[in-house]
Computed example of a mutant assay.
Amino acid sequence: MATFFTLLGQHWDAFLAGAVFSVTLSFTAIACGVLVGLILAFGLLSENRLIRYASNIYRSIWRGTPLLIQLLIIFYFLPHVGIELPPLGAACLALSMNTAAFQAEIYRGGLIAIPAGHTEAARMLGMTPFQIRKNILLPQMFRTVLPSLTNEATSLLKNSSLISVIGVTELLRTGQQVVSTTYRPLEVYLIIALTYLVMTVSLGLLGRALERRLSKSERVSHGI
């Protein structure tokens, strides 16, 4: 136990920097995945067979293969076609494309849950498809899918540890570097595990706080 606290005291700045980097990269990927995920979600529900088929292919590939394999393919394949990305760029691209597929399925479920009468009423009022999506569908959908979206963000944060295999210095690789100088793997990896636990629990609490706030806003808007 003394060694645990000694290591934490000696290397807390490195662990903190690694944790901040992991959180920043994960939220960047989530944000990038939102746009692609929304496009895919509407594509999955499109009446156009070609768009629906293409969206299904993307979703199946990125949901059906391991993130580690996706990361390695992007990192090693893109230079062969003339696209040079640094390890960080490859990591962000892989995480964003992966989470977009999972977010698309989350958004699709949220859109299906919205009563069809809401869309029909908006059409009768003369709203354009863009206005219907922006003002009617998306606000209701995000309130519905927030718990699932929080779970996806939590999963992505944990999976971001995989990017250490291509040399990106996030939390896990920071721990590996500390192990190489201290030769105390048990204590170091325990610190990393507890750090991830704190981050994921905090993210869950943030998600629940947003849920309560949205629920309160909805009750106020309905005069309850």
Rank of each mutant, 00 (worst) to 15 (best):
R49N: 10
F27R: 07
L67H: 13
Q70W: 01
I51F: 13
I51N: 06
S96V: 07
Y58W: 09
I57V: 15
S26A: 13
F27W: 13
T24E: 13
T28N: 12
F102C: 01
H80F: 08
A101I: 01
L67N: 09
L68T: 02
L85E: 01
G89W: 00
H80S: 13
I83M: 02
A19R: 08
R52P: 02
C32D: 06
I30A: 03
R49D: 11
A101F: 00
A54P: 03
C32Y: 12
R63V: 09
V36C: 08
L68S: 06
A31M: 11
I39N: 11
Y76R: 07
I39C: 14
L88A: 07
S22K: 04
I57Q: 06
I57A: 13
N56P: 02
P66V: 02
L50F: 14
V23T: 14
T24A: 15
F27K: 08
R49A: 15
L40N: 08
A41Y: 09
R59L: 13
W62Q: 05
E47K: 14
Y76A: 11
I73T: 07
A90R: 00
F42P: 05
Y53F: 15
I39T: 14
P79Y: 01
F21A: 12
F77E: 05
A29R: 05
F75C: 02
S55N: 12
G82W: 03
A19M: 13
N98W: 05
V34R: 01
I69F: 15
G64P: 00
R63F: 06
S46G: 13
T99C: 10
L45R: 15
A31K: 05
E84G: 05
G82E: 00
V81S: 03
A31P: 00
I57Y: 07
M97S: 06
C92H: 06
S22Y: 01
G33L: 04
L44V: 05
L95N: 00
L78M: 10
P87W: 03
Q70F: 02
S55I: 04
T99W: 01
N56E: 12
F77L: 02
I57S: 08
L44T: 11
H80R: 14
V20R: 10
H80D: 08
P86F: 00
I39H: 08
S46Q: 11
H80Q: 13
L71H: 05
L78V: 07
A54G: 10
V23S: 04
I39E: 07
A54T: 15
N56I: 07
F75S: 00
L35I: 15
L71A: 04
V81K: 03
W62P: 02
I61A: 11
L68E: 11
L71Y: 01
R52D: 12
I57L: 14
H80N: 12
A100V: 01
I57P: 10
E84R: 12
G43N: 09
Y58S: 11
A19L: 11
Y58N: 10
T99E: 14
G37R: 07
A54W: 12
V34Q: 01
G64K: 07
E84W: 06
I30L: 08
R63M: 10
A29L: 07
R59A: 13
A19Y: 05
L50D: 09
